[in-house]
Simulated scan of single mutants.
Amino acid sequence: MKKKSSFSTQGQRADIGSLVIYRVLPNRYADAVGPFVFLDHIAPKVQTKINKEGTGAHPHRGIATLSYILNGEDEHFDSAGNYALVHSGGVQWMNAGNGIIHDETLNYDSKTDSKLTHAFQFWINLPAKIKAEKPGYLAIEGRDVPFKELPDGSGWVKVIVGSFEELTSAIPTYSAQFLYHIHLEPGAAFAIELPDKVEVAAYLPTLQAIINDEEFKAGDFIEYDRTAGSIEVKNKGQEACDILLFGGEPYPEPIVAEGPFVMNSKAEVANAYRNFYNGDYGKIDYDKQRAGM
């Protein structure tokens, strides 16, 4: 049985500098999908000059940030001393744990002739016990993201988080969760069965698609019911289309989110701010981190 859509909506503009950004999650209908509590879509753009400012150094606590770079290169810095530059198709994952400061800069890919930039950032809520641990970090280049061709040249699936069939991502998980990038050629279809109680949503970043016999347009975020069933995606268009499918088991603990912090109580959020203003999260040494790459 095919799962039924609960609602669909579009993201709201939340631009940073020259980046055109659509804030897809949270929205007026949903605060989370499984452990995913945030999704920004950095829209496709031809970049004509190098971005040297980044998003600006800022704190996080209680979540893992995940940046998925479709096109371009993403430079990561944080106050734990982690640094990496990943290119088109790559992933930056950072467990903010008990507090960290980080910064990211998205530019066009220096390894190719393309000036196109296009990316996503997710926040993944952490269990309370992981929120109390030290931060962690992982960078994955595009060639190392688990990848599978679909039958008859109809497209492919990339496993950014979790597992799909024989593929498993290197991104650490602390609950049942998944994030798939599905690419379908014109006329192609993809289907997946999901168990009972799993929360799942689809996002169409650039083109329309038919999902469980309903037609959705570019920019649509669609959440589905929590009963066992299938998700079937069809591309009836003239161009190849992309779909992000993500979710997981419901987050079982209280969620209190404010600014860059996602904790389990208001007192914990207040403490997160207090620690940040006290300087407990450290500082980023940009020059030292670049020099040590």
Rank of each mutant, 00 (worst) to 15 (best):
V233F: 02
P35N: 11
E199T: 08
E223Y: 03
I211T: 09
A30K: 12
N212H: 09
F120W: 04
G34K: 04
A128N: 12
S230N: 14
T173Q: 11
K283I: 13
R61Y: 05
E73F: 03
H102Y: 12
A267L: 09
V20G: 08
K115C: 05
A139H: 09
N98K: 14
K131G: 02
A272S: 15
I160D: 00
F120V: 01
L184N: 03
P205S: 09
E185D: 10
G56I: 05
K197G: 04
K217Q: 15
I243K: 02
L150E: 07
E104S: 08
A202P: 00
T9C: 14
E199K: 07
D213R: 12
A272I: 10
A43F: 06
A80R: 09
G11N: 04
N82A: 12
S154N: 12
R28T: 14
Y281F: 15
A202Y: 02
N98Y: 02
G89N: 08
V20Y: 10
E223A: 15
V198M: 12
A132C: 08
G237M: 06
H118M: 01
N278L: 15
E199C: 06
S169E: 08
F7M: 14
T112L: 11
H41C: 05
E149W: 01
F147N: 14
P135L: 08
P26I: 06
S110L: 08
A267T: 09
A119W: 00
K134D: 13
D225Y: 07
K115A: 11
I222K: 01
I222G: 02
W123L: 03
F120G: 00
A176K: 13
E215V: 10
G282T: 07
P205C: 10
P250C: 04
I222P: 04
P59S: 03
R23P: 04
Y286H: 12
K283W: 06
Q289V: 03
V86T: 09
F190D: 03
A257R: 12
D40A: 07
L85D: 01
E165A: 13
I182Q: 03
V37A: 10
S88K: 04
K52T: 15
G219F: 04
P146G: 10
D152N: 15
S154K: 13
G56D: 09
D144I: 02
Y108W: 15
D31F: 07
G54A: 06
A240W: 02
R28D: 15
H118E: 11
P195G: 11
G62S: 09
